[in-house]
Design a protein around this nucleic acid. Structure first.
Lengths: 144, 144
DNA sequence: CATGCATCCGGCAATATGCCGGTTGCACCG
DNA sequence: CGGTGCAACCGGCATATTGCCGGATGCATG
Protein backbone atom coordinates (compact mmCIF):
# COMPACT_ATOMS: atom_id res chain seq x y z
CA UNK A 1 0.00 0.00 0.00
CA UNK A 2 1.05 3.56 -0.25
CA UNK A 3 -1.44 6.26 0.59
CA UNK A 4 -3.57 6.51 3.63
CA UNK A 5 -7.13 5.94 2.56
CA UNK A 6 -10.39 6.59 4.33
CA UNK A 7 -10.28 3.29 6.18
CA UNK A 8 -6.81 4.04 7.51
CA UNK A 9 -8.02 7.40 8.69
CA UNK A 10 -10.85 5.74 10.55
CA UNK A 11 -8.42 3.32 12.12
CA UNK A 12 -6.16 6.14 13.22
CA UNK A 13 -8.99 8.13 14.69
CA UNK A 14 -10.27 5.15 16.65
CA UNK A 15 -6.85 4.09 17.88
CA UNK A 16 -5.92 7.61 18.83
CA UNK A 17 -8.65 7.48 21.45
CA UNK A 18 -8.87 3.79 22.31
CA UNK A 19 -5.48 2.32 21.76
CA UNK A 20 -6.17 -0.88 23.69
CA UNK A 21 -9.22 -1.88 21.70
CA UNK A 22 -8.98 -5.49 20.44
CA UNK A 23 -8.29 -5.82 16.74
CA UNK A 24 -11.48 -7.78 16.40
CA UNK A 25 -13.62 -4.91 17.68
CA UNK A 26 -11.72 -2.46 15.55
CA UNK A 27 -12.36 -4.69 12.57
CA UNK A 28 -16.05 -4.75 13.41
CA UNK A 29 -16.26 -0.98 13.56
CA UNK A 30 -14.61 -0.40 10.24
CA UNK A 31 -16.28 -3.29 8.50
CA UNK A 32 -13.29 -5.40 7.58
CA UNK A 33 -12.12 -8.80 8.67
CA UNK A 34 -9.84 -9.07 11.64
CA UNK A 35 -6.85 -10.12 9.58
CA UNK A 36 -7.20 -7.31 7.07
CA UNK A 37 -7.51 -4.85 9.93
CA UNK A 38 -4.43 -6.22 11.66
CA UNK A 39 -2.54 -5.97 8.40
CA UNK A 40 -3.46 -2.34 8.00
CA UNK A 41 -2.52 -1.48 11.54
CA UNK A 42 0.80 -3.28 11.17
CA UNK A 43 1.46 -1.34 8.00
CA UNK A 44 0.68 1.93 9.69
CA UNK A 45 3.05 1.02 12.49
CA UNK A 46 5.87 0.01 10.16
CA UNK A 47 5.37 3.12 8.06
CA UNK A 48 5.87 5.19 11.19
CA UNK A 49 2.40 6.69 11.02
CA UNK A 50 1.59 5.03 14.31
CA UNK A 51 4.61 5.74 16.47
CA UNK A 52 3.46 3.79 19.46
CA UNK A 53 0.73 3.50 22.05
CA UNK A 54 0.70 5.60 25.17
CA UNK A 55 -1.31 5.52 28.34
CA UNK A 56 -2.62 8.98 29.01
CA UNK A 57 -1.57 9.74 32.56
CA UNK A 58 -3.83 12.34 34.03
CA UNK A 59 -2.20 13.14 37.29
CA UNK A 60 1.39 14.15 37.43
CA UNK A 61 3.84 12.28 39.56
CA UNK A 62 4.20 13.98 42.87
CA UNK A 63 6.82 16.67 42.63
CA UNK A 64 7.03 16.61 38.88
CA UNK A 65 7.05 20.05 37.34
CA UNK A 66 6.03 20.89 33.83
CA UNK A 67 7.11 24.03 32.06
CA UNK A 68 7.27 25.71 28.70
CA UNK A 69 10.54 27.17 27.47
CA UNK A 70 9.81 29.82 24.88
CA UNK A 71 12.92 30.22 22.80
CA UNK A 72 13.98 32.92 20.38
CA UNK A 73 16.96 32.12 18.19
CA UNK A 74 19.55 34.46 16.77
CA UNK A 75 19.11 33.02 13.37
CA UNK A 76 16.92 30.31 12.03
CA UNK A 77 16.87 27.51 11.06
CA UNK A 78 17.81 26.02 14.34
CA UNK A 79 20.45 23.57 13.20
CA UNK A 80 21.88 21.83 16.20
CA UNK A 81 19.63 23.28 18.82
CA UNK A 82 16.83 20.84 18.02
CA UNK A 83 19.17 17.89 18.34
CA UNK A 84 20.68 19.14 21.54
CA UNK A 85 17.26 19.72 23.04
CA UNK A 86 16.22 16.22 22.12
CA UNK A 87 19.21 15.00 24.08
CA UNK A 88 17.71 16.11 27.39
CA UNK A 89 15.55 13.42 28.87
CA UNK A 90 13.38 16.02 30.56
CA UNK A 91 12.42 17.56 27.24
CA UNK A 92 9.01 16.25 26.29
CA UNK A 93 8.26 18.01 23.05
CA UNK A 94 9.85 20.57 20.77
CA UNK A 95 7.94 22.59 18.18
CA UNK A 96 9.35 25.06 15.71
CA UNK A 97 6.91 27.90 15.39
CA UNK A 98 6.39 31.06 13.43
CA UNK A 99 6.10 34.51 14.93
CA UNK A 100 8.27 36.23 17.47
CA UNK A 101 9.19 32.94 19.02
CA UNK A 102 11.11 30.23 17.26
CA UNK A 103 10.76 27.22 19.51
CA UNK A 104 8.25 26.04 22.07
CA UNK A 105 9.84 23.42 24.30
CA UNK A 106 7.75 21.44 26.74
CA UNK A 107 9.70 20.01 29.64
CA UNK A 108 9.01 17.98 32.75
CA UNK A 109 11.49 17.97 35.61
CA UNK A 110 11.67 16.74 39.17
CA UNK A 111 12.43 20.00 40.90
CA UNK A 112 12.76 23.73 40.49
CA UNK A 113 16.48 23.28 40.70
CA UNK A 114 16.45 20.87 37.81
CA UNK A 115 14.35 23.34 35.89
CA UNK A 116 16.82 26.10 36.56
CA UNK A 117 19.73 24.01 35.44
CA UNK A 118 17.95 23.01 32.30
CA UNK A 119 16.97 26.60 31.69
CA UNK A 120 20.57 27.73 32.04
CA UNK A 121 21.86 25.06 29.78
CA UNK A 122 19.40 25.95 27.08
CA UNK A 123 19.89 29.68 27.52
CA UNK A 124 23.63 29.40 27.01
CA UNK A 125 23.36 27.29 23.89
CA UNK A 126 24.88 28.75 20.82
CA UNK A 127 22.29 30.51 18.70
CA UNK A 128 19.78 30.97 21.52
CA UNK A 129 18.96 34.61 21.81
CA UNK A 130 16.17 34.75 24.33
CA UNK A 131 14.47 32.31 26.65
CA UNK A 132 11.33 32.67 28.69
CA UNK A 133 10.31 30.04 31.19
CA UNK A 134 6.70 29.47 32.15
CA UNK A 135 5.94 26.92 34.80
CA UNK A 136 2.68 25.03 34.39
CA UNK A 137 0.49 25.77 37.36
CA UNK A 138 -2.49 23.82 36.27
CA UNK A 139 -3.44 21.53 33.45
CA UNK A 140 -6.73 22.09 31.77
CA UNK A 141 -8.13 19.78 29.17
CA UNK A 142 -5.92 17.60 27.10
CA UNK A 143 -7.16 15.82 24.01
CA UNK A 144 -5.67 13.34 21.63
CA UNK B 1 -5.67 1.32 47.63
CA UNK B 2 -5.13 4.95 48.07
CA UNK B 3 -1.71 6.24 47.29
CA UNK B 4 0.32 5.43 44.28
CA UNK B 5 3.16 3.22 45.35
CA UNK B 6 6.34 2.23 43.58
CA UNK B 7 4.65 -0.59 41.71
CA UNK B 8 1.97 1.74 40.40
CA UNK B 9 4.66 4.11 39.25
CA UNK B 10 6.34 1.32 37.36
CA UNK B 11 3.06 0.35 35.78
CA UNK B 12 2.43 3.92 34.70
CA UNK B 13 5.86 4.31 33.24
CA UNK B 14 5.57 1.10 31.27
CA UNK B 15 2.05 1.81 30.04
CA UNK B 16 2.92 5.35 29.08
CA UNK B 17 5.26 3.93 26.46
CA UNK B 18 3.71 0.59 25.58
CA UNK B 19 0.03 0.91 26.12
CA UNK B 20 -0.89 -2.21 24.16
CA UNK B 21 1.29 -4.57 26.16
CA UNK B 22 -0.65 -7.61 27.42
CA UNK B 23 -1.42 -7.58 31.14
CA UNK B 24 0.43 -10.84 31.43
CA UNK B 25 3.69 -9.36 30.19
CA UNK B 26 3.21 -6.29 32.31
CA UNK B 27 2.71 -8.56 35.30
CA UNK B 28 5.91 -10.38 34.47
CA UNK B 29 7.89 -7.18 34.32
CA UNK B 30 6.72 -5.86 37.64
CA UNK B 31 6.81 -9.19 39.40
CA UNK B 32 3.17 -9.62 40.29
CA UNK B 33 0.51 -12.06 39.21
CA UNK B 34 -1.60 -11.20 36.24
CA UNK B 35 -4.75 -10.72 38.27
CA UNK B 36 -3.12 -8.40 40.77
CA UNK B 37 -1.66 -6.39 37.93
CA UNK B 38 -4.99 -6.13 36.17
CA UNK B 39 -6.57 -5.01 39.42
CA UNK B 40 -4.03 -2.27 39.85
CA UNK B 41 -4.42 -1.05 36.31
CA UNK B 42 -8.18 -1.04 36.66
CA UNK B 43 -7.86 0.94 39.87
CA UNK B 44 -5.60 3.45 38.19
CA UNK B 45 -8.11 3.80 35.39
CA UNK B 46 -11.08 4.24 37.70
CA UNK B 47 -9.18 6.74 39.82
CA UNK B 48 -8.61 8.79 36.71
CA UNK B 49 -4.84 8.44 36.91
CA UNK B 50 -4.91 6.62 33.61
CA UNK B 51 -7.23 8.70 31.46
CA UNK B 52 -7.13 6.44 28.46
CA UNK B 53 -4.89 4.90 25.86
CA UNK B 54 -3.84 6.76 22.76
CA UNK B 55 -2.11 5.75 19.58
CA UNK B 56 0.68 8.17 18.95
CA UNK B 57 0.11 9.36 15.40
CA UNK B 58 3.35 10.60 13.92
CA UNK B 59 2.24 12.22 10.77
CA UNK B 60 -0.37 14.90 10.81
CA UNK B 61 -3.37 14.67 8.61
CA UNK B 62 -2.79 16.53 5.42
CA UNK B 63 -3.71 20.15 5.87
CA UNK B 64 -3.93 20.04 9.62
CA UNK B 65 -2.28 23.01 11.28
CA UNK B 66 -1.03 23.11 14.81
CA UNK B 67 -0.46 26.31 16.70
CA UNK B 68 0.16 27.73 20.13
CA UNK B 69 -1.98 30.53 21.47
CA UNK B 70 -0.09 32.40 24.15
CA UNK B 71 -2.63 34.18 26.27
CA UNK B 72 -2.27 36.96 28.80
CA UNK B 73 -5.29 37.62 30.98
CA UNK B 74 -6.43 40.86 32.51
CA UNK B 75 -6.79 39.24 35.86
CA UNK B 76 -6.22 35.76 37.07
CA UNK B 77 -7.50 33.27 37.92
CA UNK B 78 -9.01 32.53 34.60
CA UNK B 79 -12.53 31.65 35.65
CA UNK B 80 -14.59 30.95 32.60
CA UNK B 81 -11.87 31.21 30.03
CA UNK B 82 -10.64 27.69 30.70
CA UNK B 83 -14.10 26.27 30.30
CA UNK B 84 -14.79 28.23 27.18
CA UNK B 85 -11.53 27.14 25.66
CA UNK B 86 -12.32 23.53 26.42
CA UNK B 87 -15.50 23.99 24.44
CA UNK B 88 -13.62 24.36 21.16
CA UNK B 89 -13.02 21.01 19.56
CA UNK B 90 -9.85 22.30 17.96
CA UNK B 91 -8.30 23.06 21.32
CA UNK B 92 -5.95 20.22 22.19
CA UNK B 93 -4.48 21.27 25.50
CA UNK B 94 -4.65 24.18 27.88
CA UNK B 95 -2.03 24.93 30.53
CA UNK B 96 -2.09 27.68 33.13
CA UNK B 97 1.43 28.96 33.51
CA UNK B 98 3.39 31.39 35.60
CA UNK B 99 5.35 34.33 34.23
CA UNK B 100 4.29 36.96 31.78
CA UNK B 101 1.90 34.60 30.12
CA UNK B 102 -1.11 33.09 31.80
CA UNK B 103 -2.22 30.38 29.42
CA UNK B 104 -0.59 28.24 26.79
CA UNK B 105 -3.22 26.80 24.48
CA UNK B 106 -2.33 24.16 21.93
CA UNK B 107 -4.70 23.97 19.01
CA UNK B 108 -5.06 21.99 15.81
CA UNK B 109 -7.19 23.28 12.98
CA UNK B 110 -7.90 22.43 9.38
CA UNK B 111 -6.97 25.73 7.79
CA UNK B 112 -5.45 29.12 8.36
CA UNK B 113 -8.93 30.55 8.17
CA UNK B 114 -10.10 28.32 10.95
CA UNK B 115 -7.08 29.37 12.96
CA UNK B 116 -7.89 33.00 12.42
CA UNK B 117 -11.48 32.56 13.47
CA UNK B 118 -10.42 30.70 16.57
CA UNK B 119 -7.83 33.34 17.29
CA UNK B 120 -10.42 36.08 17.01
CA UNK B 121 -12.89 34.28 19.20
CA UNK B 122 -10.32 33.78 21.91
CA UNK B 123 -8.93 37.29 21.61
CA UNK B 124 -12.34 38.84 22.15
CA UNK B 125 -13.15 36.73 25.17
CA UNK B 126 -13.80 38.61 28.31
CA UNK B 127 -10.70 38.81 30.47
CA UNK B 128 -8.26 38.13 27.64
CA UNK B 129 -5.77 40.93 27.48
CA UNK B 130 -3.24 39.78 24.96
CA UNK B 131 -2.92 36.91 22.53
CA UNK B 132 0.02 35.78 20.46
CA UNK B 133 -0.37 33.08 17.85
CA UNK B 134 2.53 30.86 16.83
CA UNK B 135 1.98 28.36 14.08
CA UNK B 136 3.91 25.13 14.39
CA UNK B 137 6.23 24.81 11.42
CA UNK B 138 7.89 21.62 12.40
CA UNK B 139 7.57 19.06 15.11
CA UNK B 140 10.71 17.88 16.78
CA UNK B 141 10.81 15.08 19.26
CA UNK B 142 7.80 14.14 21.25
CA UNK B 143 7.97 11.87 24.24
CA UNK B 144 5.43 10.31 26.49
C1' DC C 1 -10.44 -13.19 68.59
C1' DA C 2 -13.97 -12.03 65.21
C1' DT C 3 -14.90 -8.94 61.39
C1' DG C 4 -13.99 -6.28 57.46
C1' DC C 5 -11.00 -5.01 53.97
C1' DA C 6 -7.24 -4.58 50.66
C1' DT C 7 -4.32 -7.29 48.18
C1' DC C 8 -2.72 -11.13 46.36
C1' DC C 9 -2.80 -15.85 43.86
C1' DG C 10 -4.22 -19.55 40.57
C1' DG C 11 -7.72 -21.81 37.52
C1' DC C 12 -11.12 -22.29 33.95
C1' DA C 13 -14.13 -20.80 30.25
C1' DA C 14 -14.54 -17.23 26.83
C1' DT C 15 -12.02 -14.26 23.71
C1' DA C 16 -8.35 -12.48 21.03
C1' DT C 17 -4.07 -13.11 18.59
C1' DG C 18 -0.42 -15.07 15.41
C1' DC C 19 0.09 -17.48 11.53
C1' DC C 20 -1.23 -19.70 7.69
C1' DG C 21 -3.37 -21.18 3.13
C1' DG C 22 -6.66 -19.71 -0.19
C1' DT C 23 -9.55 -16.23 -2.99
C1' DT C 24 -10.23 -12.08 -5.62
C1' DG C 25 -9.39 -8.04 -8.51
C1' DC C 26 -6.07 -5.71 -11.20
C1' DA C 27 -2.08 -4.15 -13.68
C1' DC C 28 1.52 -5.68 -16.61
C1' DC C 29 3.73 -8.31 -20.34
C1' DG C 30 5.06 -11.73 -23.79
C1' DC D 1 -5.34 -13.52 -24.48
C1' DG D 2 -3.46 -16.49 -20.83
C1' DG D 3 0.14 -16.14 -17.46
C1' DT D 4 2.43 -13.89 -13.67
C1' DG D 5 2.94 -10.98 -9.76
C1' DC D 6 0.91 -8.43 -6.33
C1' DA D 7 -1.89 -6.05 -2.91
C1' DA D 8 -5.73 -6.72 -0.17
C1' DC D 9 -9.01 -9.53 1.53
C1' DC D 10 -11.19 -13.72 4.10
C1' DG D 11 -11.64 -17.68 7.34
C1' DG D 12 -9.65 -21.37 10.38
C1' DC D 13 -6.87 -23.49 13.78
C1' DA D 14 -3.45 -23.61 17.55
C1' DT D 15 -1.81 -20.65 21.06
C1' DA D 16 -1.97 -16.62 24.09
C1' DT D 17 -4.68 -13.44 26.69
C1' DT D 18 -8.65 -11.91 29.17
C1' DG D 19 -12.74 -11.85 32.36
C1' DC D 20 -14.38 -13.74 36.23
C1' DC D 21 -14.49 -16.32 39.75
C1' DG D 22 -13.20 -18.65 44.72
C1' DG D 23 -9.91 -18.69 48.13
C1' DA D 24 -5.46 -17.40 50.89
C1' DT D 25 -3.03 -13.87 53.48
C1' DG D 26 -1.86 -9.76 56.15
C1' DC D 27 -3.55 -6.10 58.81
C1' DA D 28 -6.22 -2.69 61.30
C1' DT D 29 -10.29 -2.31 64.32
C1' DG D 30 -13.68 -3.10 67.93
Amino acid sequence: MQDIDAIDRTILSILSREARIPMKSLAGRIGLSRSATTERVTRLEKAGIIRGYRADIGQLEEGQIQAFLLVTLQRTPSIGVLDRLAGFSSVRKVSSVSGQLDLVVEVEVGSINALNELRNEVATMDNVEDLTTSIVLRRGIERS
